[in-house]
Simulated assay, not measured.
Amino acid sequence: MDLTIADPKGLIRESYRIEGITLDECKSIFMDWALSLVVDADTPAALRLLLAHYGRPDHPMTGVLQAALETPPPATRKGGRGARLGYTRDRG
């Protein structure tokens, strides 16, 4: 993966250049970054590349990126009556 794909708007790069940036500001920038990725992007690969390229142990963005890598993927919604009754698409 290329840095231009991993950080298309340069948001993560710029966050590491801001002196005195706070954890809350990093979280906000991270959300903007996540929304700027292409739909089929390999997000874990992008996070690993950004950490390898920019990561510094003393910067709050490093912690945000690491936490994003450690978070399990979101659960899928089963939805509605079928989920309550234990139905799946396979069984109808």
Score class of each variant (00 low, 15 high):
R84C: 13
G20A: 02
Y16D: 00
G10C: 05
T62W: 01
K78H: 15
T71H: 08
R89E: 15
G55T: 02
L85K: 08
A75W: 07
L37K: 14
R77Y: 09
E25C: 00
S36L: 11
G10L: 05
Y87F: 15
P60K: 11
T22K: 15
P57D: 15
P73K: 08
S36N: 11
P60N: 08
L37P: 05
D2P: 12
T88H: 14
P60A: 05
D90W: 09
D32I: 09
A68I: 11
A68P: 00
T22Y: 15
A46D: 14
C26N: 08
T76Y: 14
E25Q: 04
L69I: 15
Y54D: 05
Y16V: 00
G82M: 10
L49T: 01
R77L: 14
G79Y: 15
G55I: 00
F30K: 05
V39P: 03
G86N: 08
I18K: 00
E25V: 02
L11H: 02
G79A: 06
L85F: 07
P44G: 02
R84S: 12
K9Q: 14
E14T: 08
I5D: 04
G20L: 04
T71M: 10
L49S: 07
L49H: 05
T43I: 14
D42V: 12
A34L: 13
Q66Y: 03
L65P: 05
A41K: 12
G86K: 13
C26L: 06
S15V: 00
K78N: 09
A83H: 12
K27L: 08
P44Q: 04
H59D: 02
A6V: 02
R89P: 14
E25A: 03
L11S: 03
Y54L: 01
R91L: 05
L23Q: 02
I29L: 05
A83P: 03
L47P: 01
R17F: 04
K78M: 12
L49C: 06
R89A: 10
Y16N: 01
H53I: 11
T76V: 11
D2H: 05
A34K: 09
E25G: 04
Y16W: 01
A67D: 06
R89H: 14
